[in-house]
């Protein structure tokens, strides 16, 4: 179910489009923002908002890989495994995750903190290996940087290594 806060955003979302159904992805994304996944109740609610049947929402939700239809860990690590990242070590990064957290793609740590997914290209091909963690990108990962990320997430729930507005090469960053 949408929270009261999320519900407040809905009218503005619907207003952007001449046809209600267009609000489908914005609403699915909004649903996912709440708990990290989209529940059946969410889909039914969206169906109602858009004058559709739940199956018509479901078919859209299953098409898009970012939408999780099952609960996932608090921190969703999505490692890009496409060729460009693979050339610079994404498979190794996946091994690091296993080594540090004991999970392979598709798995969640027992404490429900981390879920690992191997995903396709995230448009960071020049700054691999990289991963997306919830809303943030972490790029040019080394074992050390990766460990920092995990440690920071564990302790504070966030990490400064997250990429800001993107520029690469960045004259203001020296490696």
């Amino acid at each position: 179910m949408f929270s009261a806060e999320a519900k407040k955003k809905i009218p503005e979302i619907l207003k952007r489009y001449p046809i209600k159904a267009s609000a489908m992805l914005p609403l699915l994304n909004l649903a996912q923002e709440e708990e990290g996944w989209v529940s059946e109740e969410h889909m039914c609610e969206i169906a109602k908002l858009l004058d559709l049947t739940p199956p018509k929402v479901y078919e859209v939700a299953t098409f898009y890989t970012m939408l999780n239809l099952k609960p996932i860990g608090k921190f969703h690590l999505q490692v890009c495994k496409s060729l460009m990242c693979a050339l610079v070590g994404s498979d190794t990064l996946i091994q690091w995750v296993d080594q540090e957290l004991g999970i392979t793609p598709g798995e969640t740590t027992e404490d429900g903190m981390f879920t690992l997914s191997a995903v396709e290209c995230l448009a960071s091909c020049g700054t691999g290996p990289m991963m997306q963690m919830n809303d943030d990108y972490f790029e040019r990962l080394t074992l050390e940087r990766f460990r920092t990320v995990i440690a920071d997430l564990r302790s504070t729930g966030e990490c400064e290594l997250a990429t800001g507005p993107f520029r690469w090469p960045d004259p203001e960053v020296t490696t």
Binding site: M43, T53, P54, P55, K56, Y58, E59, T62, F63, L69
Partner: peptide, 25 residues
């Protein structure tokens, strides 16, 4: 189901080679 009957009861789910017709979940 969608166009003629207007029941909108069938959902093609997933993508690519794992596309599968389902109802809802």
């Amino acid at each position: 189901c969608d166009d003629v009957i207007d029941a909108q009861a069938l959902a093609p789910t997933g993508r690519g080679s794992s596309t599968e017709i389902k109802h809802f979940g």
